[in-house]
């Protein structure tokens, strides 16, 4: 109780301290979506940092992560409002560079997050190293199956930076570090139901699969449902969190998962923009980190803080 009071007092103090200089400061934050749990957690982090820094933010995103054109419209509308800074998670690492150029020409500082942009326009990028994170998932899976046998993966999409990064991170790590493990199949499915049916078909085709990697929350839900329905005796490793996945890990359907730090990504975007306005130089990339979590460390405060339901 005392601690809560102290932190609120501190936050209040900071807010007051910051308020005069940033009274009119507004940052539109444009994500790749908003309905997914992950983006809600990024939003929560951004809002926390906005309150702490005394700035105003809006958090928007297109309906689905395929609507690059809609996201560009949102971006253009945001730039038209002449904000003091802009947070942007590009659906396509190249397509939206011209729109960002407009923002840069108008002197609006840009911070990229989640997926990078292939240009020097963003001052920094707050992101998870997806390749390293998926490699950690590969390590967890390899350890659990005794570093030999057949494995497979279901990836959430073929084209986004996160889909490609996690695919490459997992596949390359297995190929490089575990010569006795064979990847028999990699398929794609973009929602929990489709992932379930895809994984069941893959298990059907390869009954001797020992381990399975699912590259996001929907795929991981599909993996746990598929394991339950088929009764297959395999080791499942997921990605991100969400209550379904956490429950599956607690009851042993999945052995573990990788969590990014979505709250940290949101905080990083707003904090970086505030720093940029204060004239600080920022590193090109800010790695917001990832953690392997399983039954043993899920309640660890450091892990529990970045898991979402």
């Amino acid at each position: 109780m005392k601690k809560t009071l102290m932190t609120s007092a501190l936050a209040l103090g900071l807010a007051f301290g910051a308020a005069p200089s940033f009274a009119e400061t507004y940052f539109p934050i444009i994500a790749k979506g908003f309905s997914h749990q992950f983006w809600q957690a990024v939003k929560a982090g951004a809002e926390e940092a906005a309150a702490r820094n005394g700035v105003t933010i809006t958090f928007e995103g297109p309906n689905t992560e395929a609507e690059i054109d809609k996201q560009t419209d949102i971006l253009n509308a945001a730039i038209a409002k002449n904000p003091q800074g802009l947070g942007f998670a590009a659906l396509d690492s190249q397509a939206q560079v011209p729109a960002l150029q407009k923002a840069a020409d108008a002197g609006i500082p840009i911070v990229a997050f989640d997926s990078g942009v292939e240009s020097d326009l963003p001052l920094t990028t707050c992101t998870t190293d997806n390749v390293a994170a998926a490699a950690a998932a590969a390590d967890g899976l390899a350890k659990a199956i005794g570093e030999e046998g057949k494995v497979a993966a279901v990836i959430h999409d073929q084209t986004s930076a996160t889909g490609i990064g996690r695919h490459d991170g997992f596949v390359n790590r297995i190929k490089e570090a575990y010569p006795k493990i064979e990847i028999v199949d990699v398929q794609y499915a973009n929602d929990a139901v489709k992932a379930t049916d895809t994984i069941k078909a893959m298990l059907q085709a390869n009954p001797d699969i020992k381990g399975f990697f699912a590259s996001n929350e929907g795929a991981a839900i599909g993996l746990s449902v598929a394991i339950k329905e088929s009764g297959a005796n395999i080791v499942g490793v997921g990605f991100d969190s969400g209550k379904s996945q956490k429950d599956a890990i607690m009851e042993g359907t999945l052995i573990g998962s990788i969590t990014q730090n979505p709250v940290g990504i949101g905080q990083c975007v707003v904090d970086s923009l505030v720093k940029a306005l204060a004239g600080e130089t920022l590193p090109k990339v800010i790695d917001t980190g990832f953690y392997w979590y399983d039954k043993t460390n899920m309640t660890d405060p450091k892990i529990a803080a970045v898991l979402y339901d």
Partner: peptide
């Protein structure tokens, strides 16, 4: 049928 199978109502599903 779908929400029972997933033991959850997933609001982003369906499109």
């Amino acid at each position: 049928i779908v929400s029972s199978r997933l033991n959850s109502a997933q609001p982003a599903l369906g499109l």
